[in-house]
Amino acid sequence: MSPRGVAIPDVRERLFAAAERVLAREGPGALTSRAITGEAGCAKGMLHTHFAGLDEFVAELVLDRLGHTASQAGDLPGRAGQATVAENLVAVALALLTSMEPTVVGLAMTRPGASLRVRRALADGAPGFTAVQDSITAYLDAEQRLGRLTDGTDTATVALALVGTVHHLLMTGWAGTEDPREQTTRLVFLLVGAGGKGPS
């Protein structure tokens, strides 16, 4: 437990990671500021020092995870000509799909205050699904110029289909359904003309 008044490096990430562990282990009903700070091993009031309340905390957690994935996707155009088109798309799609525990997404959706904050931040330009989609389109355009993607491919629609599907899978969760990572991989191979078959 960190003593009062002692700075904790990367406190936001420490709290975010703690919240994800609590959610994964005990579910949304167990997520309180006290549970988060206890899991993080810091003072009970630490969450409220950095966030206005639990809604803001949950919203910032979602935006942080989306931002990390958008940053990864931003590097995608620079990978044109490397590995295979399908492998590169699978990597970024799975990064987005696994950017958050499904319980985090579900919690944000069921807390109106958090959901509103996320929507407003994305509308104001915070990196999210649109940024990922734009990066995938730019990457596919680059691959098209290199001749590794068919000239007639509608790159913007491929990007929309991929990001839209991942968004749907994130929103609907994983419990009791087919593994969405396998579904995502099959979709990528279908979209880039590999007959819908994943890698052997």
Results as ranks from 00 to 15, higher is better:
182 E>L: 14
140 L>S: 04
40 A>V: 11
36 I>N: 00
95 A>N: 09
41 G>K: 12
107 L>F: 12
193 G>V: 05
157 T>K: 13
115 S>P: 04
83 A>N: 02
49 T>W: 10
4 R>V: 08
88 N>A: 12
164 G>M: 08
101 E>T: 01
65 R>K: 15
52 A>I: 05
177 T>S: 14
83 A>C: 00
120 R>I: 05
137 T>E: 15
58 V>S: 09
139 Y>R: 01
196 G>V: 07
176 G>P: 13
170 L>A: 03
183 Q>Y: 11
131 A>N: 14
48 H>Q: 09
34 R>Q: 11
14 R>Q: 02
196 G>E: 05
4 R>D: 04
115 S>R: 15
160 L>V: 02
165 T>W: 00
200 S>W: 03
136 I>Y: 03
121 A>T: 03
109 M>D: 15
15 L>M: 10
22 V>P: 10
167 H>F: 05
89 L>G: 06
152 G>S: 14
194 A>T: 01
169 L>S: 10
158 V>D: 11
104 V>P: 07
20 E>H: 03
123 A>G: 11
137 T>H: 13
88 N>G: 12
187 L>T: 06
91 A>S: 11
119 R>P: 07
68 H>Y: 13
187 L>D: 11
186 R>E: 06
40 A>Q: 09
87 E>G: 08
63 L>E: 07
38 G>H: 07
46 M>T: 15
46 M>Y: 02
90 V>Y: 02
56 E>R: 11
44 K>G: 01
79 R>H: 02
143 E>I: 09
43 A>V: 15
200 S>A: 10
136 I>K: 03
84 T>W: 10
15 L>P: 00
173 G>P: 06
181 R>N: 04
102 P>Q: 06
119 R>M: 08
114 A>Y: 04
82 Q>E: 09
68 H>P: 00
183 Q>N: 03
7 A>P: 00
167 H>N: 08
197 K>N: 15
143 E>M: 03
24 A>E: 11
40 A>M: 02
199 P>G: 00
186 R>S: 01
173 G>E: 08
62 V>I: 14
164 G>K: 07
20 E>V: 06
80 A>C: 06
193 G>Q: 04
80 A>K: 05
194 A>Q: 14
53 G>N: 12
197 K>Y: 14
146 L>T: 07
34 R>D: 02
173 G>N: 09
137 T>M: 08
50 H>M: 11
172 T>V: 15
135 S>E: 06
186 R>G: 05
146 L>E: 08
139 Y>C: 00
180 P>S: 12
118 V>H: 01
71 S>H: 15
49 T>N: 14
82 Q>K: 13
122 L>D: 09
2 S>H: 00
157 T>N: 12
